[in-house]
Amino acid sequence: MRVAIVGVQGDVEEHVFAAKAAIKKMKIDGEVQIARRKGIVSKSDAVVIPGGESTTISRLIFKSGIAQEIIEAAEQGKPVMGTCAGMIVLAKSGDEQTEKVKLLNLMDISVKRNAFGRQKESFQVKLNIKYIGEFEAVFIRAPAITKVEKDVEILATFDDKIVAAKQKNILALSFHPELTNDTRVHEFFFKMIN
């Protein structure tokens, strides 16, 4: 199994670390690579888009050609996970704050940026996630899903906002599973590989 962590900007190393820890725990053969340029995502079995600034990440993946590779991987049925900024980039549409963010349109969701407010309103909380259970979730200037279409499965809500969802091979999270030592979200994601 080869996992690509999109590495143009954001908490890339944290995802690498979490992915490696999950692979070790699952006792499977896996390789984790950082995709800072095109050519890596296309050779991978799963793709992670980390947290960071969605304006920056979006700009850089489209400019580098990584965006097209992510779209192709998703169309081939390979699992793609986006956390925080990564979730925004996966969406079909967004609020006025996403006007400057070019979206990948891989998931039938509408997102709201900074849905919980600015940094001082950022928080961590024990969240109940479908298929995973109680999970310490870290929300940092986090987005939320405001609308889902019929093929989207809601995995977690918080404060009446959707914060985790899955549509076939695409997984989107408002929070950062890579910031804690709990690897269950990454394990769940890797199990999505056919």
């Binding site: 908490d11 890339v12 190393e13 960071g52 600034e53 950022s122 961590q124 910031l179």
Partner: peptide, 14 residues
């Protein structure tokens, strides 16, 4: 500390 340091981590590579 996780939320504060986490914010800084999101700025990496930027």
């Amino acid at each position: 500390e996780l939320v504060k340091r986490g914010f800084a981590k999101m700025q990496k590579g930027g």
